[in-house]
């Protein structure tokens, strides 16, 4: 709707320039069809890119929070487990005795 009103606005000086011969070059440029089409394209592009940005932002938010809930605790716990295993292995090698697994578990 905004583009339509703008086009209407640009149409008015066009008629006025027809009645008044001393119209400036600036109004001629602004009233030319290529400028109005460019304006429209720019506003369309802005609209689309805004929407795209918003939807990607939303998708990233959802993906990020899901990752935070599902994967981050898993990584932390796996890391802890690995550390625990390494510690146990070290202790076993230090003591030299065969590790008594049932008592450790």
């Amino acid at each position: 709707m905004a583009t339509q009103s703008r086009r209407g606005g640009s149409g008015q000086p066009d008629r006025r320039s027809g009645s008044k011969p001393e119209s400036s070059i600036l109004t001629k440029i602004t009233s030319s069809s290529i400028v109005s089409r460019g304006k429209q394209a720019a506003s369309d592009a802005a609209f689309v890119s805004k929407k795209l940005l918003r939807s990607t932002g939303k998708a990233a938010w959802i993906a990020g929070t899901t990752f935070l809930i599902l994967v981050v605790p898993l990584i932390i716990e796996m890391d802890r487990e690995q550390q625990f295993n390494e510690l146990e292995l070290q202790q076993a090698s230090l003591l030299g005795a065969p590790p008594s697994t049932p008592s450790l578990k």
Binding site: I62, T66, P73, L74, E77, M78, R80, E81, F84, K105
Partner: peptide
């Protein structure tokens, strides 16, 4: 998924309604 590790148990799931849950 269901991970049973030595010091913890971690369960997580995601369903087609977009509902994510985890239990540690």
């Amino acid at each position: 998924y269901d991970y049973i590790l030595r010091q913890c148990r971690l369960r997580g799931k995601i369903d087609s309604n977009g509902c994510t849950s985890a239990y540690l």
